[in-house]
Amino acid sequence: MTTEATTPATEATGATAVNTGLAQMLKGGVIMDVVTPEQARIAEEAGAVAVMALERVPADIRATGGVARMSDPDLISGIIETVSIPVMAKARIGHFVEAQILEHLKVDYIDESEVLSPADYVHHIDKSKFKVPFVCGATNLGEALRRITEGASMIRSKGEAGTGDVSEAMKHIRTINAEIARLTSLAEDELYLAAKDLQAPYALVKQVAREGRLPVVLFVAGGVATPADAAMMMQMGADGVFVGSGIFKAGNPAERAAAIVKATTYFDDPAVITEASKGLGEAMVGINVADLPAPHRLAERGW
């Protein structure tokens, strides 16, 4: 089978068209955290565009503490066998061997995720060494562009996972949007300094300034728990949403999942979002991010 390159989606990194392209196919959709094949089935039945396989949802990682790692390969294989939609799985930041295992398992996307305990506090995974695509978290534009430089084919804003508090997700998407908007307003000879300030390669900065958007798909994650949360992120310009603890830590996962899918598609229609919000039972209890002591904030992992 040939793999001759088409025009790369990002001129500056050469991320392949098939890998950035899969993220484009997920747009307008909801990616759901699942910890068992049964949950994966429920997510697919509810209309998820992909599932994220992990050992514990972020709310449980917070509750139980300890080191959080990649899931058991058996569990990931079980989920791949159960659903027909793409399966993503998380590796620790910098843990390139967990990534090698996930690639060997033939997952469709690897999430190099701050939700797990970092394996390297200096370096992220060199994602350009892999054929399988990566999604990475970012709290601002510079961080997003550094991950893309390393080979990420998709970005998700981090938010604060496992809280059910959407305020950090809002902060990060607003930050990224504002930084992109600022770049588009700069003169071309001001982009060199902008690249220095963003700590990102000039070629990527120039591409973002010209196109007015990230060169890869941008989803929002971390604290989305209700149909209204999802619709708000879409109105903020997100390409789609990740929902972690918000579904399977809620009273009625199947209905809540379907409602979030619907609100993501009809994000600009209050009548549909209102209908989708009715009768869902208890949302996840949640934690206010403001009450979280700084060492327990996951968004600060990664750099």
Binding site: T2, T6, G21, K106, K131
Partner: peptide, 27 residues
């Protein structure tokens, strides 16, 4: 799966002006 995704150049018949120059196809 995604690891089997690929691109290839292929001619398409019936295009405007019978242009058979290969089209880059992303699978």
């Amino acid at each position: 799966s995604q690891l089997d995704s690929f691109t290839g150049a292929l001619p398409v018949s019936g295009l405007p002006e019978d242009d058979l120059s290969p089209l880059q196809a992303v699978f």
